[in-house]
Nucleic acid binder design. Structure first.
Lengths: 152, 152
DNA sequence: TAGTTCTACCTAATTAAATAAGGTGATGAC
DNA sequence: GTCATCACCTTATTTAATTAGGTAGAACTA
């Protein structure tokens, strides 16, 4: 589905999505119209979901982050999900198996703000929280190649 | 630190970082050189950490994701951290307070692969895993404005 | 107060990039 | 063997980014 050239293009774009077609073309040994066509197809196929910018939460005043495990009380699952959707402080949120709950990231400016946010869902779910101070260790996209199993 | 125009520019760029300067300029009511200058400064200040692409893990064959809680055995914290850094299947990873451990995302192609990865750190840490099937509910950057507390 | 500096913006000209148009050669289907 | 199709190419055109130089207003200084 993805060939080696596609993977190389994606690798470069993950690092800097403003890399020009000319530069991309040189690096993979194609002409720029060919690269443009490949990128267009990667987008069409949904491989590239978006061109975006990564923003430093600290620059916006979010000096604290928290990973929250939210287990909705019986019958409240959809209500809780709606709540989460509506609160901008929630970053990525995953519904996980096993203990049937959500695991979400919260961006906050203080412990106080965190408490207030958790209060909002307190009567609809059980929560447990782990605080992350300052910057996460690592943020990365899925691997493109050369995984521990090397079966791309 | 960030004024309203900056926030509006960031909002547009989060949605599509290829938006042209001309288009950005029109939307916020500036000229394109002014917008270019603002973006340059946002990058210099570290507010914009990177221009990047968001890639669909499924398109790369990662049909499964897992959130893993990793609690290193006494004295093994740095070894575990090094291990995580070296395994490409690990996505974002946070060191969290409270129970003194890591919370990380793993991209895998099968439960078998997940087991093999966890085996690698089994003698150095305790782990507990929650599986995410298919797509996460939501992935989002920190809020730019209009938070639950509206104190930007 | 008058002069100076700084900042954030502008317009116009230049340079660079993306796109569109049209062509070639290899591969596979009928 | 002919005809499509595909992925690529080059060249020309269009569009975008950058550079250079200038202006108005705020704050700073003598």
């Amino acid at each position: 589905m993805l060939d080696d050239l596609d993977r190389r293009l994606l690798e470069i774009l993950i690092k800097d999505s403003r890399t020009s077609l000319k530069e991309l073309a040189q690096q993979v040994g194609l002409s720029s119209p060919s690269v443009a066509e490949r990128l267009r197809r990667l987008e069409d196929r949904g491989v590239i979901r978006a061109f975006t910018v990564e923003i430093d939460p600290q620059a916006l005043g979010y000096t604290l982050q928290a990973i929250v495990r939210i287990r909705p009380l019986p019958g409240k699952l959809h209500i809780v999900q709606k709540l989460i959707e509506g609160i901008p402080e929630f970053g990525e949120c995953d519904k996980v198996t096993g203990d049937d709950c959500f695991v979400a990231r919260l961006f906050v400016r203080s412990i106080g703000d965190l408490d207030k946010l958790l209060d909002r869902i307190a009567d609809k779910a059980e929560t447990s929280t782990a605080i992350i101070k300052a910057q996460p260790i690592r943020r990365r996209p899925p691997p493109l190649a050369a995984t521990a199993f090397s079966n791309p």
